[in-house]
């Protein structure tokens, strides 16, 4: 399963990065969101770290929808979904492959969102950037595990694309809240031990939705139109 998942992730990343397909829209949407939010403060005024972290994760959440619509759309253009389902690889390999490629793509987008948020929202990062990267990567995995699971709902008919947003956002709330709290802690330079419960929330979210996806994905990603 891991080899097939890596093959799918490699193929998706090659398609996404070769023509920057899927990434440009995501980055532009996120930057637009950060810029618009920055207009809500007076010139020279600093946004609170909590608000900056919230804007960052909001941009990420919207970007995630575009990323997974793009990734699953790749399999629909010429019916490759049928080929994936008829291959000997388990359906979960598709989920894992998409989650991995989504994880990388989302992280690439965040590498643009982060400096933009710092610049436009007037932040000074007091904490360790490495801790910040670890927090972002950990929260991202939960977002991508869930995004890849629910992305399967958007395949087949265009009318289903809206389903992804409708179902995804309410389920993302715990991860987003935890991400906001943890990132705010990193920006303000406090240790993560001060927000241990939120760290636990991220770990639990990642574990629950990884396990749920492994069980549920074959029922969502089928040959039905």
């Amino acid at each position: 399963m891991l080899k097939a998942a890596l093959a799918i992730a490699r193929k998706d990343l090659s398609l996404a990065l070769s023509g920057a397909q899927g990434l440009v829209q995501t980055v532009l949407l996120g930057l637009l969101l950060i810029f618009i939010m920055s207009l809500s403060r007076e010139p020279g005024e600093l946004s609170p770290p909590l608000a900056a972290a919230a804007v960052f994760w909001l941009a990420t959440a919207f970007g995630q929808v575009l990323v997974f619509n793009f990734l699953y759309g790749l399999e629909e253009a010429e019916g490759a979904r049928l080929g994936l389902l008829l291959s000997p690889a388990p359906a979960q390999a598709v989920w894992l492959g998409k989650a991995l490629s989504g994880w990388v793509l989302l992280f690439c987008c965040q590498m643009v969102f982060a400096p933009a948020a710092v610049a436009f929202l007037g932040q000074t990062v007091a904490g360790s950037p490495l801790t910040g990267l670890a927090v972002v990567a950990a929260v991202d995995w939960g977002l991508c595990a869930l995004g890849s699971l629910l992305g399967a709902l958007s395949v087949g008919k265009s009318s289903r694309e809206s389903l992804l947003t409708v179902i995804l956002f309410p389920l993302l709330v715990p991860a987003l809240l935890a991400g906001i709290r943890l990132l705010e802690t990193v920006i303000s330079g406090r240790g993560l031990e001060a927000v241990g419960a939120w760290t636990g929330t991220v770990v639990a979210f990642d574990a629950v939705f990884t396990a749920a996806a492994l069980v549920l994905f074959p029922f969502l990603y089928t040959g039905e139109e």
Binding site: K11, L15, S18, G19, Q21, L74, A77, E78, G79, A80, L82, G83, L86, S87, P88
Partner: peptide
């Protein structure tokens, strides 16, 4: 993996 399929759609990646 024992079944192959060829139809209206080609199951290939255009890019």
């Amino acid at each position: 993996g024992g079944i192959g399929y060829l139809g209206h759609k080609t199951l290939i990646y255009p890019k």
